[in-house]
């Protein structure tokens, strides 16, 4: 087990290096310098700016410098907010995005697993069709559509919940979390149903039933562990999806999180900020993928023999 964990972590390192390198050179290859957008500045000012942002050094030196700073957790100064470093800006956004993603994940797992299990216990009955058609609706209603609709219904027409913000007024965390979580709840419901259906057909389930165990007992004590394998395998991509999904949700609800910073940086062509957020998000996704893989092996001992 520890061998597998170590191998996965070692595999992650080249991926992270590729992420950082690709990001750095992509941004450097951008046509037009970062100061082109302003009115044409005097040559000396540009020179000073370039010096300030270390753009006058050879590209390779810049790259090595950037790597060195990254290791120390320093993403450099922001182009747009000269007084603040990218690290500072990101640090204010990370906890918010994490909280949002966490609530969304909890919603997705609770609703998804529950409705998937309910559907699988009686396949092809109303108990199956109802949650599954809801799930299909959830999959076909992307966050950028569901979010505004929820705002319109619960925020503007019914006036039950605040339409924007995060932690400013009571209940303003509900709509963003539901918006981000719903598509994943739907997807997890379908995965759970498929996984459970497969497990429920197996002999050991019949044995457990024959011994007189009730259906809930069978589900919770025997079937769930195997039936949730597809959900566990999906957790890696889901985490990546939740983080990129925060771009949309944070934009809709005006939440000052990492996703909003990323989108704004993309609009403003704030290159250091784009690099910082890209690298941070990518590293998070890569690392969480590794955690998900390790978790999958822990859940399913058969995977340990695979390699």
């Amino acid at each position: 087990m520890s061998k597998i964990i170590l191998a996965r972590i070692l595999q992650g390192i080249p991926v992270l290096l590729i992420v950082v390198t690709a990001t750095f050179f992509l941004v450097r290859a951008a046509p037009g310098g970062p100061f082109d957008a302003e009115r044409s500045l005097p040559a000396e000012v540009v020179k000073n700016l370039e010096k300030r942002y270390n753009l006058d050094a050879p590209v390779l030196d810049q790259y090595v410098d950037y790597l060195g700073n990254l290791v120390r957790g320093d993403f450099g100064p922001s182009f747009r907010y000269p007084n603040r470093s990218v690290t500072e800006l990101i640090a204010t956004g990370v906890p918010i995005t994490f909280e949002l993603a966490f609530y969304a994940a909890v919603i997705a797992l609770l609703i998804g697993v529950a409705s998937g299990v309910i559907a699988s216990v009686r396949p092809n009955s109303l108990q199956d069709y109802l949650p599954m058609s809801l799930a299909m609706t959830g999959i076909c209603l992307p966050a950028f559509l569901l979010g505004p609709m929820l705002v319109l219904i619960f925020g503007i027409w019914l006036e039950w919940l605040p339409v924007s913000g995060w932690g400013y007024s009571p209940g303003d965390k509900i709509l963003p979390s539901v918006t981000l979580g719903s598509a994943y709840a739907a997807y997890i419901a379908r995965l759970t149903r498929a996984g459970m259906l497969e497990v429920l057909l197996q002999d050991f389930i019949r044995t457990a039933r024959a011994k007189g165990l009730s259906m809930p007992g069978v589900v919770f004590r025997h079937a769930l562990r195997g039936g949730l394998a597809p959900v566990v395998a999906f957790s890696g991509p889901a985490v990546a999806g939740l983080l990129t999904g925060s771009f949309v949700v944070e934009t809709i609800f005006q939440i000052p999180g990492l996703g909003r910073f990323y989108v704004q940086a993309a609009f403003n062509r704030d290159y250091t900020m784009i690099m910082g957020t890209t690298i941070l998000l990518s590293c998070l996704i890569v690392m969480l993928n590794i955690v998900a893989d390790i978790f999958a092996v822990w859940m399913n001992p058969r995977l340990r023999q695979a390699k």
Binding site: G12, T23, A266, I274, V286
Partner: peptide
């Protein structure tokens, strides 16, 4: 290796840069 990269973010980066 490519699978492990968060591509959605890279596509956005590409759109911004080019």
């Amino acid at each position: 290796i490519l699978y492990a990269l968060p591509f959605m973010i890279f596509v956005i980066l590409l759109m911004v840069v080019f």
